[in-house]
């Protein structure tokens, strides 16, 4: 099996499905790039993050559509194309740009199936690059998946590694409802074993990344990588943890989390978003209400603060939950 980056793994999934299903189209800003340029190079970009590379040369400009900077129209067009029988993949580039297109997502795409009495779905995938860590400032660094996870009708995927990303993308492309696919920018170059062929990872099924007995740690996306570091650190002192990666936050696999907390009695939730109305708060609420009797210690949430993402290196480092803060939270729940 080949080692592949998350960038290449998602690219793989797009290639496979576009070859398999002629209804799949890709649209967004610079998904190919080079249109109207002076070099004649038609794929001058392949996506700002390189995720859509090779699609235009292989599938042509009828299926790989470079758009102007018009996020409302990009997302709305994806919604309309999906209603009319295509399976569009819209790239929003930075997840932060979702604000520009929000109506088309949450009033249109998300609600068609329900408003139309179940007569039609909206099988569109929206790709959003998210996350802090590259000093890109307040409008290019947010982890805003809770905003979309709060909308009934949208499915929300937050992969933590290349293998899952490919399998989840293939599931997304075959799903009959709108899927928001969040890709953490810091994970793009990270490699893991990725099979070349077709495979899917189901929605609503968490991955048990580590098994242990004392603490349940739930983490998402890049926080899974940080949580593993923290778990390695406490293991030296004989503390072992379950590490659960929900992989999709809507639907959310609450059962796996609850079962684990039944065994450990302690929960640490790690989330790169600010704490209010977050996935961390959501998971904490589910465990507090449905798993209350299993808990031996107050739940610890390790999140970003209730602030925008700062620019300066030192401030951004303080903003993003660190392996040290996760380790501290694990030690805190162990004191009870």
């Amino acid at each position: 099996m080949a080692q592949k980056s998350m960038r290449d793994a998602i690219n793989d999934a797009l290639h496979l499905e576009m070859a398999r299903d002629p209804r799949v189209i890709v649209l967004g800003e610079d998904v190919s790039g080079g249109a109207g340029g002076t070099s004649g190079e038609r794929e001058a970009s392949g996506g700002i993050f390189g995720v859509t590379k090779g699609l235009l040369p292989r599938f042509g400009a009828d299926r790989v559509l470079d758009t102007p900077i018009s996020e409302s129209a990009i997302i709305g067009a994806a919604a309309g194309a999906a209603l009319a029988g295509l399976r569009p993949v819209a790239e929003l580039m930075f997840a932060d740009f979702v604000g520009v297109s929000f109506d088309q997502l949450y009033n249109q795409m998300a609600k068609f199936r329900y408003m139309f009495g179940g007569k039609t779905g909206c099988p569109a995938v929206v790709r959003l690059a998210m996350g802090a860590g590259m000093n890109m400032g307040a409008q290019h660094s947010q982890a805003i998946y809770p905003l979309l996870a709060s909308v009934p009708g949208l499915k929300v995927v937050v992969p933590s590694n290349a293998y899952d990303a490919k399998g989840l993308m293939l599931t997304a492309l075959r799903d009959d409802d709108p899927v928001m696919f969040f890709e953490h920018k810091a994970l793009y170059p990270r490699k893991s074993e990725v099979p070349d062929g077709d495979y899917t990872v189901p929605f609503g099924e968490a991955a048990l990344v580590r098994e242990g007995e004392h603490v349940t740690v739930v983490a998402l996306a890049r926080m899974v990588v940080f949580a593993e570091k923290a778990i390695d650190a406490v293991q030296k002192d004989g503390i072992t943890c379950d590490l659960i990666d929900p992989r999709t936050v809507s639907p959310l696999d609450a059962d796996t989390i609850l079962e684990s907390v039944e065994n450990t009695g302690r929960l640490v939730v790690v989330d790169e978003s600010p704490p209010r109305c977050s996935i961390a708060a959501d998971i904490a609420a589910i465990v507090a209400s449905r798993g209350f009797r299993s808990l031996r210690a107050p739940i610890q949430m390790v999140t970003a603060p209730h602030t925008p993402v700062p620019f300066a290196r030192e401030l951004e480092r303080a903003y993003v939950p660190s392996p040290q803060r996760i380790e501290q939270a694990i030690r805190t729940v162990m004191q009870e």
């Binding site: 610079d30 790039g33 249109a35 109207g36 340029g37 700002i48 470079d66 102007p68 900077i69």
Partner: peptide
């Protein structure tokens, strides 16, 4: 240009 796309295309 806007990023990697020519204005003659996008406008």
């Amino acid at each position: 240009y806007s990023e990697h796309t020519g204005a003659d295309y996008a406008v």
